[in-house]
Simulated scan of single mutants.
Amino acid sequence: MEKRYAIVARALAEAIAEGRHPVGSVLPNEFELADQFAVSRSTVRAAMRELQASGLVSRKRNAGTRVEARTPDRSGSGFTQALATIEAVQQFGTETERHVQRVADVVTDNQLADELGCRPGRRWLCISSLRMIPGDATRTPICWTDVYLDAAFADEVRARMAGHHEIFGTLIEKISGRRIAEIRQDISAVGVPAQMAEPLKATAGAHALSIRRQYLFASNEMAEVSLSIHPADRYRYSTRLTRQQSKG
């Protein structure tokens, strides 16, 4: 029997394909869709993840679910992100599953310091994880992520990480009582590192995207750095550019 979330996802995909929800439009919110299909909000969220995994929609906190394409992306198991705010980055953690592979205390040598953009000798707690799309029957990871958290928060992070499903930046905010004021992001083309190939179910050296995000407090102090490797066929980064309105 087809699961209820799959029925909802299929109905919405058909509506998008037929133009009832045009590309660029925003879908009804979770409450409205739950009423429309007589299902729970959790079922609607599962359906949204299906649509997002197929490249039909993108989701941003407080901005709704935007239609990105009329037909699914058949290039492979993928994930689309449309990021313009810190809150949108935080949403990533609620839409994917974290599978922790390793937790370790590290001290940056010259090479790692250059990768993170910090000074050599700085202490961090490193949490390495695979990220997966909930409900993906293939269990194909969308990325490998090494998250480096300021060692000052290490003990509390270790104690609370099991029950924390968002990105670690939100946990740092709860522990420190401070807000992440800025995220600096750098994206570059790389090959899948040999040591990550097997857990990623990818070929060593295959095309991939490397994404570094530095999380900073208002004081410009770096609280966290994440280094992610996304096999190229599993990730799409979406942005919207608009023309600045002329004055006068």
Rank of each mutant, 00 (worst) to 15 (best):
E2M: 12
E2Q: 14
Y5E: 12
A9D: 03
R10G: 04
A11Q: 08
E18D: 14
R20S: 15
P22G: 06
A34Q: 05
F37M: 05
A38V: 11
A38F: 14
S40M: 09
R41G: 09
S42M: 07
T43Y: 06
V44I: 08
V44D: 01
V44R: 01
A47P: 01
A47F: 01
M48S: 01
M48D: 00
E50F: 02
S54M: 12
G55A: 05
L56N: 04
S58R: 13
S58D: 09
K60L: 10
R61T: 09
A63T: 07
G64R: 02
G64Q: 02
G64A: 05
T65S: 12
R66E: 09
G76P: 02
S77Q: 15
S77M: 15
S77V: 14
G78D: 12
T85D: 08
I86F: 06
E87A: 12
Q90P: 03
Q91E: 15
F92M: 15
E95W: 11
E95G: 04
E97C: 07
E97R: 11
E97W: 10
H99E: 15
Q101Y: 00
R102A: 03
R102Q: 08
V103M: 12
V103Y: 06
D105C: 05
D105A: 13
V106N: 03
V107L: 07
A113C: 02
D114F: 15
E115V: 04
R119V: 15
G121L: 05
W124F: 11
C126M: 13
C126I: 04
W144H: 05
A154E: 02
A154H: 02
D155H: 13
R158A: 02
A159L: 09
G163L: 07
I167T: 14
T170S: 09
I172S: 04
K174Y: 15
I175H: 01
G177V: 04
R178Q: 12
R178N: 08
R179H: 12
I183M: 06
R184K: 14
Q185D: 03
I187N: 00
S188V: 04
G191F: 11
P193T: 04
M196N: 04
P199S: 02
A208T: 03
S210K: 03
R212D: 00
R212K: 10
Y215G: 01
L216W: 00
L216G: 01
A218P: 06
A218K: 07
A218H: 09
A218Y: 06
S219F: 00
M222V: 08
S226V: 05
S226R: 02
L227F: 04
I229M: 06
I229G: 08
H230Y: 09
D233V: 13
D233H: 13
R234E: 10
R234Q: 09
R234D: 09
S238H: 12
R240N: 12
L241R: 05
L241E: 07
T242H: 14
R243Y: 07
R243M: 10
Q245R: 15
Q245S: 12
S246D: 11
K247D: 15
K247A: 14
G248V: 11
